[in-house]
């Protein structure tokens, strides 16, 4: 009788141990799954911000306020007019809420010239109100190389500089 009792206890312990391991495995699986979900959600959010930045870049590249154009002729590909760039920030500021905010949203657009000399023009900067007191604001940026046309230098040739546009979207 006592031997049987012991055998029963042994079986019970064995069952408890198996169940314990089983639940440990399930808990591990769940932790792993939730961690993975968290990671993929974050990645998806980043992808969304990047897509937004790409969309904004395309809008900027085809904006008549910046494009290299001459009368009724076709605008030049991947080209931004420096004479327009120098004054466009004022126009963007003046019509921020009624026109440009719906187009660019919360973003920062910077035109950088690399050659012949390094220059930078911040043409649009509209951070989210939550960043009002922050000094360093995180930005998801996309870059796109450009030709910067300058007709203000005079001479018979039009000068084309090499640069890029940086479009950062506030997450």
């Amino acid at each position: 009788m006592r031997l049987r009792n012991k055998k029963g206890q042994l079986h019970l312990t064995e069952t408890i141990a198996v169940l314990f391991i089983f639940f440990v495995l399930i808990v591990f699986g769940l932790i792993f799954y939730f961690k993975y979900q968290q990671y993929s959600l974050k990645e998806e959010q980043e992808q969304l911000v990047i897509s937004n930045a790409i969309r904004t870049t395309s809008k900027v590249l085809f904006l008549p306020e910046l494009q290299c154009s001459k009368g009724a002729a076709e605008p030049e590909d991947n080209c931004i007019d420096l004479m327009k760039v120098r004054h466009v920030a004022e126009v963007f500021d003046r019509h921020l809420t009624d026109y440009y905010y719906p187009i660019f949203g919360y973003s920062k657009i910077v035109i950088n010239q690399i050659y012949p000399e390094q220059k930078e023009w911040v043409i649009y900067d509209h951070p989210k109100p939550i960043y009002a007191n922050e000094t360093i604001i995180p930005l998801e940026s996309t870059y796109f190389t450009l030709t910067l046309k300058d007709e203000s230098l005079g001479g018979e040739n039009i000068h084309y500089s090499f640069g890029y546009i940086q479009v950062g979207v506030y997450p």
Partner: peptide, 18 residues
Amino acid sequence: FTRELLAYSTMSALMKTT
């Protein structure tokens, strides 16, 4: 998509540079 566009725009900008 991004790389292709970048390659094209970079080449086009390079070729025009004065």
